[in-house]
Design a protein around this nucleic acid. Structure first.
Lengths: 203, 203
DNA sequence: GTCTATACAGAGATAGAC
DNA sequence: GTCTATCTCTGTATAGAC
C-alpha cells in the first residue's frame, strides 16, 4: 500500500478530513514522519508521496508543523476514543479490553502511533498544550480503571500511579518495536499485552 | 549541571573518551540530541554547548553522524555491561536485579538512553549494523534469564519471546517519560519495575 | 588544536501564472 | 486548487591563519 492509498483499513483514521487532497497530504506526512522522523522529513518528500508539487503542501496547511499538529491531534483523539468506549461490569474485563485495544492500535497504526508518541517535541508550545490535554485524559482513563479494580479488590498493586505508567509504557512501546509482517499480528500483540497486564496487576 | 560539566556522576559514561575536548563534545551532543532530537540539532548547537567554535566539532569527529554513532555505541555497551554483570544463583533474583539496574539506568541516564533508543534511524547502515549486534546481545541476555527461570519453574510464561519484549519495553520506555526532579528517583523506578516484572512473569 | 571566514547544498515558504 | 519558479535562510562541512 502506498502512502496516497486511502482505501485500506489503515487509513480510516483520516476518514473525516476533507478535502481529499488535504487527507492525502496528511496520510503522506504520517508515513514520512513515521519512517524518517519529523525533522528529517522535507516538505518536498511529503508532497511527492502525496503525488503533488512541493507548493501543494501550503494550500491546505500553513506550515509543516501544522501538518504534524493535525496528525497528532487526530491520532491522540482516536486512541482516547478507543479507551473510553470500553465497557463492561468487571474492572478486570474492562482493563483487559482497554489494553488489548490500545496495544493493538499501536501495532496496527504504528506509523500514526510513532508520530503521536515520539514527535511531541516538534510541536509549538500552543499545539503541545492542546495535545497534552488529550494525553492527560488518556492517562486518567487508565488510572481510573486501575483504581476501580483496586477498590473492588480485583487488582492488588502497591503503587497505582506507577502501575498506570507501566501499563501505558507496555502499550506505547509497541509503536517502537512493531514491524508489519513480523511474528505477531496486531490482535496477537493486544491479547499478549492484556494477559501480561492482568498478571502484573495481580488480577 | 551544564552539558560541559563532566564532574558529575552522570558523565561517567564518557570516562574513557579522550582527549577531553572530544569528551566534552560527546557530552554536549548527547544533551542536545536528547533534548531536541538528532535532526533538529545543529553542529553549531553542539559546539556552543561544548564552549567551542562551530568548526571544532570536526577536529575529533568526521561528521555529526559519527558523533551520534559514538554516543550510541558507548551507550549500548554500557547498558549491556549492566545486564551481563548481574550475578546470583536464583533466576528470579537475577532477573529482578537486571530489571532494576536496566530500568534505573534508563532513568539516571535518560539523556543518553533517549539517543540510544530513539535515534537509531539516523545512523548509517554500517553503524546501525554494529549497534544492532549489541542490541541483539541485550535482548538475548534478557531472554536467557527468562528461559533459565522457566526451566527451573520459577517463572510461568506462555510466550517467552513476547515476555522478553515486554520486559524490555517496560525498561526502555522509562527513557521516554522520565523527568529528573519528578515523583520518583531512578532507584525507585528500578525497584518498581523489578516488582512489576516479577509479577508479570508469575514468579 | 582551535579559530574566523566561507563555500555549497538543501530546506521552508511564497509569487504569480493557469 | 495546483503548478513552476524562486527567494531566503540555515545547516554541514572545509580552508587556511594562528
Amino acid at each position: 500500500m502506498t502512502a496516497a492509498d486511502e482505501s485500506g483499513p489503515l487509513e480510516r483514521t483520516w476518514r473525516d478530513v476533507t478535502p481529499p487532497a488535504a487527507r492525502r497530504m496528511l496520510a503522506a506526512a504520517t508515513a514520512a514522519f513515521a519512517e524518517r522522523g519529523y525533522h528529517a522529513t522535507t516538505t518536498r518528500d511529503i508532497a511527492a508521496r502525496a503525488g503533488m508539487s512541493p507548493a501543494a503542501v501550503y494550500i491546505h496547511y500553513r506550515s509543516k508543523e501544522e501538518l504534524l499538529f493535525h496528525i497528532s491531534r487526530i491520532g491522540h483523539a482516536a486512541s482516547l476514543d478507543l479507551l473510553t468506549s470500553v465497557t463492561g461490569e468487571d474492572p478486570v474485563e474492562r482493563m483487559s479490553a482497554a489494553v488489548a485495544a490500545f496495544a493493538s492500535w499501536h501495532a496496527e497504526h504504528h506509523t500514526t502511533a510513532r508520530v503521536v508518541q515520539y514527535e511531541l517535541g516538534a510541536l509549538t508550545p500552543d499545539h503541545l498544550a492542546e495535545v497534552g490535554a488529550l494525553r492527560r485524559r488518556i492517562e486518567a482513563t487508565v488510572r481510573g480503571m486501575l483504581e476501580d479494580g483496586v477498590a473492588t479488590g480485583a487488582f492488588e498493586v502497591p503503587d497505582v500511579r506507577g502501575a498506570t505508567l507501566a501499563v501505558l509504557s507496555l502499550c506505547v512501546d509497541v509503536a517502537r518495536w512493531y514491524r508489519p509482517g513480523g511474528r505477531r499480528t496486531p490482535a496477537a500483540v493486544g491479547a499478549l499485552h492484556a494477559d501480561l497486564v492482568r498478571r502484573m496487576l495481580g488480577a
